[in-house]
């Protein structure tokens, strides 16, 4: 999306969108689940087998992102789909008829909390993961760990926004979730394993997760991988914005 100068009246819209998220327990629950699932699975991974030749201590410590991202995706999809109940979108767009402005505020209200919770989550996951791994993770540099934590938070944010874009396009949170989650859990795994490298490394989840490895052995580097995920997110968000602007509410 292009970024026009932020109008003076953007702040109230953002405040309203943030209030909408704060006042729905299910959305706060999704953010809590993001933290809980990620750290819990990282803790479990920390005490697992470390003799695998492909063992990567940074990814092992942050591997809770695999299940945790489901919560981030749910958060993004549900924050949008909460608008599609019984003509709710009409009410929102009657209050804020400039749809681009409204959507930008919605995305910001989804992205910022996800990023904040994502940072805390990644840090906690790394700490508990390392505690379990012990000596196996002692070789990680500060730079690698910082990259892992920030990259992890950005990745989770991009996935939440990706889901928000798809949910806006489909006008359905359930639709978005039933498209994205099987994709991540099944398609990405299958293609990833079958094709080995190459095309699969450009899928939204696999590309972004490159940033979680100490020594990525993929087509893309850690930041370029995250950049590819950002492109997927940009595409989903643009499609959502296009649909929102074009269609009758």
């Amino acid at each position: 999306m292009s970024s026009p100068p932020i109008p003076r009246s953007f702040a109230p819209v953002l405040r309203s969108e943030w209030l909408k998220i704060r006042t729905l327990r299910s959305l706060l629950g999704a953010l809590l689940a993001l933290f809980a699932a990620t750290t819990a699975f990282s803790a479990i991974a920390g005490v697992s087998e470390t003799s695998d030749p492909e063992f990567d201590p940074l990814f092992m410590a942050l591997s809770g992102v695999g299940p945790g991202q489901i919560a981030a995706i749910s958060f993004g999809a549900m924050a949008v789909s909460s608008e599609f109940h019984g003509g709710g979108l009409r009410l929102s767009l009657a209050a804020v008829p400039r749809r681009g402005r409204w959507f930008a505020a919605k995305l910001l209200a989804i992205g910022v909390p996800t990023l904040a919770v994502g940072l805390v989550t990644a840090l906690a996951a790394l700490v508990v993961g390392r505690a379990g791994l012990g000596d196996a993770a002692s070789g990680l540099s500060t730079g690698e760990q910082t990259r892992g934590v920030i990259g992890c938070a950005v990745y989770l944010t991009l996935m939440a926004l990706f889901a928000a874009g798809v949910a806006t396009l489909l006008r359905s949170g359930v639709g978005a979730l039933s498209l994205i989650i099987p994709f991540i859990l099944v398609v990405s795994f299958v293609i990833g394993d079958a094709a080995g490298a190459g095309v699969a490394d450009f899928l939204p989840d696999r590309a972004g997760q490159t940033v979680l490895y100490e020594t990525p052995d993929r087509t893309l580097g850690p930041w370029t991988g995250l950049g590819v995920t950002a492109l997927w997110t940009a595409a989903a968000v643009t499609a959502g914005a296009w649909s929102l602007r074009r269609r009758d509410a």
Partner: peptide, 21 residues
């Protein structure tokens, strides 16, 4: 449409989100 308010919000919170915008 009277069904436009999200069922999981309180009536007050529903109005506060509209007022804020």
């Amino acid at each position: 449409d009277a069904q436009a308010a999200h069922g999981s919000r309180s009536g007050r919170d529903h109005l506060r989100t509209l007022a804020a915008s």
